[in-house]
Every structure is written in structure tokens, then in C-alpha cells.
């Protein structure tokens, strides 16, 4: 009756002599330690360095946006969506704006659609460079790729700031379009930054390989 759950494969013993294996060490990797991104607790059962079981514990950043949303207007909930996933605030705004537009049947003008897509893709750039930085610093590269990634991120954050006034929590999408139109020269700067991006990726790849 249960759905087919994938079988967890038995991994072979690597580098450990057989008489050491067998006992599981339970460690609570608590809400604060170098590799938690945000607060998240994992109760892991370790066998050497192999994780056998993992039980996650959530709730350390439960900020009850839903309960607050009971008392705000539709537009008043928009800044809270910024803070749900703080690396990609524009896309969170867009998702919320999309759902309200679907509820109310609002049409979005064409220029706003294009703007939304451009900003969402820039947000994706921001998000994924930070991902690279954090991933590599988790794997042991202790911060150098993070510095490079954040340097690139700062360029795009400058764009966001000139457009919406804030680096991270942009609160830019509205129901039916965007909050404000592009300032003069924004498009050229965005083009320059995006054109310079593959060079950054090459530099990054050279750094880590």
C-alpha cells in the first residue's frame, strides 16, 4: 500500500578497517555551526564520516508570515515575501504577484513582463554565484571562492539598488506590473555586467580547478 520509496544503497566501507566500523555516533549538528546556512539542526548518526541516518529539526527561523498575512492587506504582504528566501527577493515578489494576478484576473503590460523576466534572471545570477561561493566554502575552500562570488554579486546588487532603492529586499513587483520604470542608463550598465559575466566564470573555474 505504501508508495515505492527508493532503497537507500549500502555504501561500501571506504578507508576504514573493519573492526572500527559498526557503532553509530549520534551528533546533533546544532543550529549554529560553520556549514549551516541559516539555522537548521540535524541529528545525524555517523559511522566514521559516513552519515547513516539524519533527522532534521526545523523551526528556528519560523517567522509566521502566514499569521501576519491575516492582518495585512494583499500589498502589505509583499515585503514579507522578500524575506522568505533572502537571496532571490525579486523572484519571491514575482511569485506572489503572479498568484494575486491569477486570483483577480489582472493583465500585465508587455514592458512590465520583460522587466520582470530581466530582473528575475539577474536575481538568478545573484543567487547562483552565492551558491557557488557557499558550496565551495563548505567543501573546504574556506572563503576564497566566496570572496570572488560576492564581488560579482555586488555588481548586480548595485543595479538593484539603482532601480529599487535597496540591495536585497527589493519589494519591486506589484500586482499588474512593476513598481517603477528603469532609470536612464540602467540597461546599458546591465548589458555590460552580463557581458562580463562569462569572463568571471572562466576566472572562477581557473581558481578552483
Amino acid at each position: 500500500m505504501t508508495a515505492d520509496l527508493p532503497e537507500i544503497a549500502e555504501s561500501p566501507q571506504r578507508g576504514m578497517s573493519s573492526h572500527l566500523a559498526g557503532e553509530l555516533l549520534e551528533v546533533s549538528m546544532g543550529p549554529q555551526h560553520p556549514s549551516t546556512h541559516g539555522v537548521f539542526r540535524m541529528n545525524v548518526a555517523l559511522e566514521g564520516e559516513v552519515v547513516r541516518k539524519l533527522k532534521p529539526v526545523f523551526g528556528y527561523l519560523h517567522r509566521n508570515h502566514e499569521k501576519i498575512g491575516e492582518n495585512t492587506s494583499y500589498l502589505g504582504s509583499m515585503p514579507y515575501t522578500d524575506r522568505l528566501d533572502y537571496f532571490c527577493s525579486m523572484t519571491n515578489n514575482w511569485a506572489y504577484a503572479l498568484s494575486v494576478e491569477k486570483l483577480a484576473g489582472i493583465e500585465v503590460p508587455e514592458r512590465a513582463e520583460y522587466l520582470r523576466i530581466i530582473l528575475a534572471e539577474l536575481t538568478r545570477l545573484v543567487n547562483h554565484t552565492s551558491l557557488l561561493g557557499f558550496l565551495l566554502s563548505d567543501m573546504g575552500a574556506w572563503g576564497t571562492p566566496l570572496m570572488y562570488a560576492f564581488r560579482e554579486r555586488e555588481r548586480v546588487l548595485d543595479l538593484f539598488e539603482s532601480l529599487s532603492g535597496s540591495r536585497m529586499m527589493c519589494d519591486y513587483m506589484r500586482f499588474g506590473g512593476c513598481r517603477v520604470d528603469l532609470p536612464a542608463g540602467w540597461m546599458e550598465r546591465a548589458r555590460q555586467i552580463v557581458d562580463g559575466f562569462p569572463r568571471f566564470l572562466d576566472e572562477f573555474e581557473e581558481l578552483i580547478t
Partner: peptide
């Protein structure tokens, strides 16, 4: 202490970054 909880942590890391 490396102690970031939420969005401000990212600004803290950005402060510690190269810019």
C-alpha cells in the same frame, strides 16, 4: 562569532567580503 540567522547574515557576509 560566525552567527548568522537570516537575511542580515548575508549583509554581514557581504561586509566581510571584498568590497
Amino acid at each position: 562569532l560566525q552567527f548568522g540567522l537570516a537575511c542580515c547574515a548575508i549583509e554581514m557576509i557581504a561586509t566581510a567580503a571584498s568590497r
